[in-house]
Amino acid sequence: MENRTFIVIGIVIALLIGVMAVFLASSQPDGLESTALVIQGQKTLAGSAPGNAEIHESPDGKFSYTAPMPDYSLGEKLGPWGGIIAIIAGTLLAFGLVLGSSRLILTFWSRGKGKPGQ
């Protein structure tokens, strides 16, 4: 398979997975969150967390930052469309950032790599 075809198919698959995630991803806590809920006594190791369970965080002396698209969404107004836009933006951003960084490394850092006398 040629590079161009591989890239197009790869990106399309990544975007489809991302869009499916907006509708099908589980809302249950992940492993780290579940552990925090167990430690804080809000859930048992094998049981589910109650609907109102919330991780108590102590922000004292810790850095705080508000992301532009928290939780992969654009707020409640846009509903699932916000999630779709966020996931597409993130997927393309990850692609572009790796592409751009790699090109920069090859262009500026590897200049002359393998050339005789350099």
Binding site: F6, I11, A14, L92, F95, V98, L99, L106
Partner: peptide, 13 residues
């Protein structure tokens, strides 16, 4: 490069 970038996009998704 593009293959590494596709892998990153897939891992993100």
């Amino acid at each position: 490069i593009p293959i590494v970038a596709v892998l990153a996009a897939g891992i993100f998704a």
